[in-house]
Design a protein around this nucleic acid. Structure first.
Length: 176
DNA sequence: GCCAACGTTGGC
DNA sequence: GCCAACGTTGGC
């Protein structure tokens, strides 16, 4: 049995979970933070993700206004470069049915899309680039998905505490 | 449904 | 370039 939903007169109850936070990986040689800043309206569809868990997050859980950490994988060093924001919720990834696209998947069609994406708009570049190796030393980030050995998920949830800590570090504030 | 083989990701 | 971790595929 579910718990009773509290109702506040004159207000729609907030989404139970509130604003959520995510980390999106990109190889900078493929799509960089500068590319995002240079995009029309500093916004891009986050296309090409071909992993079911990542797809489910984008299709089912991301909401407009959710915060995004923009992470460079395969960089030297890998790390978080800045923030972004979800500006459009999950919708079919049209690159999946484009035979000329490198992420083409013949199982996905316009009528029955298999892969989904969201739109992401740039937030702010961090004053300090946060190298993965440095994040590993931060006590309050213990347990973060990104820091798990062998973590490969390219779209992953970030807790509110992790978000706060990383944004603070990015703006040069000391954290532990 | 199991599981071995294979391909990919991504840090180092 | 190496390799651990993980996801996917396909035979049975």
């Amino acid at each position: 049995m579910g718990r009773a939903t509290p109702k506040v007169a004159g207000r729609t109850p907030a989404r139970a979970t509130g604003r959520q936070f995510w980390l999106l990986k990109s190889e900078p040689g493929c799509f960089s933070y500068d590319d995002l800043l240079a995009a029309p309206d500093q916004t891009t569809p986050w296309s090409g993700v071909r992993n079911y868990q990542a797809r489910n997050f984008m299709r089912d859980q991301m909401r407009v206004g959710d915060g995004v950490l923009f992470y460079y994988s395969g960089a030297e060093p890998p790390g978080v470069v800045g923030t972004a924001e979800i500006v459009r919720e999950g919708y079919p990834d049209d690159t999946s049915w484009d035979p000329n696209d490198e992420h083409f998947d013949p199982r996905s069609t316009k009528d029955s899309p298999l892969w989904f994406m969201v739109d992401v708009r740039a937030g702010a570049r961090f004053q300090n680039y946060l190298a993965l190796g440095d994040l590993r030393h931060v006590r309050s980030l213990e347990g973060m998905e990104l820091l798990r050995r062998g973590s490969r998920l390219s779209v992953q949830p970030v807790s509110a505490g992790e978000w706060r800590t990383i944004c603070a570090m990015g703006s040069g504030q000391p954290v532990r």
